[in-house]
Design a protein around this nucleic acid. Sequence first.
DNA 1: CGAACATTTGATAGCCTTCAACTTCGGTGG
DNA 2: CCACCGAAGTTGAAGGCTATCAAATGTTCG
Lengths: 231, 231
Amino acid sequence: MFSRHEMSARSKVDAPPPVAIGTANFGSSSFTLLPALLGTIHGYDKGEEIYGDDEPADYAYEVISGAVRTCKLLDDGRRQIGAFHLPGDIFGLEMGSVHRMTADAVVDTTVRLVRRKSLEEAALKDIGVANALRALALRDLRHAEDHMILLGRKTALERVVTFLLEMDRRLAVAGMFELPMCRRDIGDYLGLTLETVSRVISQLHGKGVLGLSNARRIVLRNRQLLGAMAV
Amino acid sequence: MFSRHEMSARSKVDAPPPVAIGTANFGSSSFTLLPALLGTIHGYDKGEEIYGDDEPADYAYEVISGAVRTCKLLDDGRRQIGAFHLPGDIFGLEMGSVHRMTADAVVDTTVRLVRRKSLEEAALKDIGVANALRALALRDLRHAEDHMILLGRKTALERVVTFLLEMDRRLAVAGMFELPMCRRDIGDYLGLTLETVSRVISQLHGKGVLGLSNARRIVLRNRQLLGAMAV
DNA sequence: CGAACATTTGATAGCCTTCAACTTCGGTGG
DNA sequence: CCACCGAAGTTGAAGGCTATCAAATGTTCG
């Protein structure tokens, strides 16, 4: 299931040990989300679908290693990636009984599954669980709100820079990070084509604000300037 | 505070009586959100700010009459409207202690305020409140996810049609509705300019799929066709 | 009635997409 | 170990969709 290359990629993003499912921040206090609900470990190959649009939402997922994209698709194939889920992130929680996005593995990925029914039952008995689940929903909502202004109002340059700063914040180790996703995924996340993403990254590389040891391995050389470019 | 024109506009959207703050759907069951927490009524003039970005999030709001837009702004004035809130909608609930968007009245608007502290205290004691708040967050998240694919991947025509169908669903009375917001607001909601919005609406009107008794008062003449156009 | 705002419509420009070719990289097999 | 192959990435040229700039018309309200 795991090639040597993917293993080495995963060991990078694993560096900060995954947050245990069961903790979530809400305001200033912290709740125990899933005491004793450890869930099942499962692996997915690169590109494999974890769940599809309109499928029953029977599980929630915590990324242990790897990366997951959640997307919406239009009939003609246009795709919008709503979020990338990295180790420690929880995804798949829904309001209704079916998933409203598809989720698939960006690279070989290990997740922990928790039965939705268990979660809902816990949320009806344990107020800490209910509020922790609320915090997770609010965190996703906050991300979506930030992403809407990117998609609606930012230029290609601003989008890419915003993306690079997000990835830097989320997976940089020793000031460097390795992207698990390809240019097409980045484009579908940012509402751009893969070519435009490539051009902007090349342009940033040419200006020296960006170091590239290869297309996926990036070091930001001037975060302050990049922060200003992200608007 | 209320002009005659705005009053008549409000009486239109009021037609379905506002849902009492205190009810929210989650899955198949319904919870009492705020038993005995009635809140304070307050009015805002058209264009008036209800709260600003980074201001303390001391209240949550239910729209009683009128309409509210919640927006994010970039430094150079670019604006993205994340949502329009119509009678019965609840907005202003945040994860942290400050608001992360601005909210202002699209037209003269009446809201019910509930102290955030009361809500959080209730959420720590009453599991129904906690889960109802979660349902509200998940509903907003679902809307944001739907809106992301619109902003990232739909054409101008598809965006406007999607918007018209959303407004038809939310405020049509007798197959007709009156928009509370101007073309610029629609543009800032759809990631377009006001001119593009105007052009697309004119085009739809010219084709006869749309009736316009005036610029704001619209009747959809072929919802099936429009649904196909929205992708 | 007049001023301010809102909407429509036209002409032009520009950003990003599309289409295409080429290059690079990683993995496999001889 | 190296050549080959496909996937991923880069780069160029042309075109299209939407933005921008501009002006006219319509609407509201003091």
